[in-house]
Design a protein around this nucleic acid. Structure first.
Lengths: 253, 253
DNA sequence: CGGCGGAATTGACGTGGATCAATTACGATC
DNA sequence: GATCGTAATTGATCCACGTCAATTCCGCCG
């Protein structure tokens, strides 16, 4: 009891309308009274800690999750203990949309650092969306964004080499931090080299070597998890890939 | 006029309720009267021919497209005339969901063979969905499926080698043909080796060599575009990837 | 403060698949 | 049926990146 009181500050729950993420998250584009209605179905839990799961593959699906602070990775575990990282999720990003299809989660989601996460019961959200066209539209938009983002990732994995992939990854993080009001040039990675490699389809050693190479070339400053972007344009021209190889031929009519 | 009459058989337009795809497509799970309402907003065009575009990258977005017969590829063109194939779409599959976000198509869509395609004005569909919960739900499901499919593809590109990718591709086609009432063991490819390679992140030559290898190993019979699956289980065990390499290590807690 | 264990780095080496280069096989057109 | 252009196959070579192995670094805990 006393205990509960002491840590009660953890329970401070920011209403959607006061949340700094309102312009990236579901409330985007909603009228104030609709934000209130959305607010009424959001569950806000106490912070989770590194290693906690939001859900595991094959869990039955009830809620979508939105990162409020911290970061989360989604991944597909494989029998043999290995895993394929599918995504890293920053504040304002929605997790679980792939589970609507079968009412079952197709991947696992694990917290990378102490994080706050909002929970949205999907059936209630769906009901509300049917009555609030702008919310319905925003849901479609968010799902569309998820599709577009994954398409972008497919292109990265399909035809970019290792350095183009890592450069794109760093720029993606940089841009997302910026939108969230953090520095776009100075940030900390919450994931390991191993996880970055898994996400980008590269070996850990390759990731490590590229970080040192990028640093030697004056593109970034790397100190363990601490990243500083020194030459953003340099990274961008890497991604654009002057040195792009595969598949430059003409397609058939 | 006479002309129009002569080819008028092309204009035979199957209503959704009579369409053989009703159980895979948007009408899935809708009550008959709701199918009628959906039917009312569907535009059915005359068949398109090989090379015709449904839309091009950066076109403004108005309609979703559903393949009725034939096949369509989506791809991202690059300045230099190259392209990255993003997907192959068979009857009953929806195209254009990634465009909802910005009201602009993020990729191009081109018909691979003579094909019939239904067109759905998205704004009218959205309005209808707001009034027909089962349609709204079906739309969420279809978008969720798109996300889950792309996730699956990310895993393929992220950690599978060339033969695992091609085996998975063949099995995917086989399964999709089966659901559509076609043979799952004997079919024709509507796309070129080059397009397969682009889709799978492989060089044309690699695709070609793998086809011959698979044939030599008695997994399939290949004769140009004509494919016969001889040993489905063999292909499946390839995909499962006994010989799987990358990333079998333990993840951190 | 010292010792332990996982994470990261660095180096040496091997290989899967890209690239380059011919050759062959089709399909379209007249 | 001859001609041409593109698709597909096949072979030879190369290299980006994975794998293996050793070392260093850092956070953690007694």
């Amino acid at each position: 009891m006393a205990d509960r009181k002491i840590i009660s500050f953890e329970n401070i729950k920011v209403a959607c309308k006061n949340c700094s993420l309102a312009t990236l998250c579901l409330p985007m584009g909603l009228a104030p009274e609709d934000v209130e209605r959305l607010d009424a179905i959001v569950k806000r839990n106490r912070p989770l800690h590194r290693g906690d799961h939001l859900f595991r593959q094959d869990d039955s699906f009830h809620n979508l999750f939105v990162v409020k602070t911290g970061s989360v990775k989604t991944y597909a575990p494989s029998e043999d203990g290995g895993e394929q990282v599918l995504g890293f999720h920053l504040p304002g990003e929605i997790i679980g949309l792939d589970a609507i299809l079968n009412n079952r989660h197709g991947c696992s989601a694990k917290v990378l650092e102490t994080s706050a996460v909002c929970e949205l019961p999907f059936d209630r959200l769906e009901d509300l969306a049917a009555n609030v066209p702008s919310l319905q539209h925003q849901l479609y938009r968010l799902m569309s964004k998820e599709i577009a983002d994954e398409t972008h990732m497919l292109m990265l994995l399909g035809k970019k080499n290792a350095e183009e992939r890592l450069a794109a990854f760093l720029l993606s993080l940089s841009n997302r931090f910026k939108r969230r009001g953090f520095s776009s040039t100075d940030f900390y990675l919450s994931m390991s080299r191993h996880e970055i490699g898994s996400y980008l389809g590269l070996a850990v050693e390759t990731v490590s070597r590229l970080f040192t190479r990028f640093q030697d070339e004056g593109l970034v400053r790397v100190e363990r998890k601490h990243i500083q972007i020194i030459d953003r344009e340099g990274l961008e021209s890497l991604v654009a890939g002057q040195r792009n190889h595969r598949d430059q031929q003409q397609a058939p009519s």
